[in-house]
Amino acid sequence: MTNPLGTRLDATFKGVELRSGVDGRLAVVVPREAIVPVLTFLKEDGYDYLQLISCVDWIDRGEFELVYLLSFYTEDEVGRDGGKQEVLLKATVPREQASAPTATGVFAIAEPHEREIHELYGIHFEGHPRLTPLFLDRDYEIPPFRKDFDTKQYVADVFDRVPPIDEEG
């Protein structure tokens, strides 16, 4: 790929795989250990805005895909071709014993995002300051956003089992 940022990334880090991303974005696939160094590199390169951390459950492949979407704040009235693009950073994590390094040291906003992924997917983030529950009140055996969690079955097992109140009795 003839992308200046891609070339520099390729030269700096080992095991970085570049893909032509969606609609003009650079997609970078890195090994799990390289998440934090690559994020730091990108931040110093001007990508100072972590838009979201997402997680996709590819159950057939037996792995989670963590997606970091980086962009930058700008005051220029330019479109996407204004010299810089957004970057999609991806790393895969095995479904068993899922864990990944935390990005909170690089981006402060990573904290709630990682907390949410920890809660909904059960991925442990090493070094995260507070991996306490964020949204959920009940305990779920399988974290609910995993593909093998069946919401309909769960509703039938839990909420539908609560008996209606017998007013006459």
């Binding site: 330019v78 479109g79 906003i109």
Partner: peptide, 25 residues
């Protein structure tokens, strides 16, 4: 605001002219 991913009025109130309608129409 920028370090914590602020958008919208929160950063526009600090003088930053960032609006997706302009940046990515």
């Amino acid at each position: 605001a920028l370090a914590m991913g602020g958008v919208g009025q929160v950063i526009r109130a600090t003088g930053m002219k960032y609006d997706v309608r302009k940046v990515d129409p």
